[in-house]
């Protein structure tokens, strides 16, 4: 019985300590404070090809989302909205006002997962990585499931200007819609060109696209 009390008080003390750590350093346990973590990052990597060490430096969105326990908490709701607003404000809209490119090109971009790794060349044409996570055209059976199925996307969403704008913002900067989306910010981070984003919007929305057949 006495043992049990000792255990319980130990637990309470443990909780208090954990609480204090959380306040100072976020969600991480003993020893994983900012200073130790930064030292580990700094000593842990070397640049390789086009993947320079600067890639380890986070922007505000990345830093916020790297503590998912906090990022998904109630207290962080305001911060999430702030991050979405900032990402939304930074979106570059199509320079000629046209959202829809060529869906056939879009399919090729969606298929390709290439580009920007340490073994890729700087002049490599980047892919969109889309099929890695999404079902898109019905004919492609090798698709991932990290993101929702996009088959029939345009049939559901229509092809109004509003639909085009929303699709553009999701692909250009996914974090404008969901602060810590798993999806890369294709346009915002320079992974995809403006034309590539247009082609992807067409893949999803063009009534003739295989996605909507």
């Amino acid at each position: 019985m006495r043992k049990r009390i000792a255990y319980l008080s130990g637990l309470a003390a443990g909780l208090l300590v954990a609480g204090a750590v959380h306040a100072a350093d976020g969600s991480w346990g003993p020893g994983a404070d900012d200073a130790a973590f930064q030292a580990m990052l700094k000593s842990g990597f070397r640049e390789a090809g086009i993947a320079k060490l600067s890639r380890l430096e986070q922007d505000a969105t990345q830093a916020f989302c790297s503590d998912p326990k906090f990022a998904e908490s109630k207290e962080a709701a305001g911060k999430r909205a702030e991050i979405e607003a900032a990402n939304l404000a930074s979106i570059k809209w199509p320079s000629d006002g046209k959202f829809l490119g060529d869906f056939k090109e879009g399919e090729k971009i969606a298929q390709s997962g290439r580009g920007l790794t340490s073994t890729d060349k700087a002049d490599q044409v980047n892919g969109g990585n889309c099929y890695n996570c999404h079902q898109i055209s019905k004919t492609e059976i090798s698709y991932g499931t990290i993101g929702p199925s996009l088959t029939g996307y345009g049939k559901l969403k229509g092809n109004s200007e509003q639909a085009q704008r929303e699709t553009w913002s999701k692909i250009w900067n996914s974090k404008s819609v969901n602060a810590c989306s798993n999806m890369p910010r294709g346009g915002h981070m320079g992974i995809l060109t403006e034309q590539q984003v247009k082609d992807l919007v067409a893949l999803l929305l063009d009534p003739d696209s295989p996605v909507n057949k």
Binding site: W28, G29, L116, I191
Partner: peptide, 25 residues
């Protein structure tokens, strides 16, 4: 213990042009 906690934190550390962390996948 520290190594374990640092590993957990690293697992969620997102960065680079694709915002990827281990936890993305």
């Amino acid at each position: 213990r520290q190594m374990f906690e640092l590993g957990k934190r690293m697992f969620y550390y997102g960065g680079g042009p694709h915002d990827f962390s281990c936890s993305t996948c």
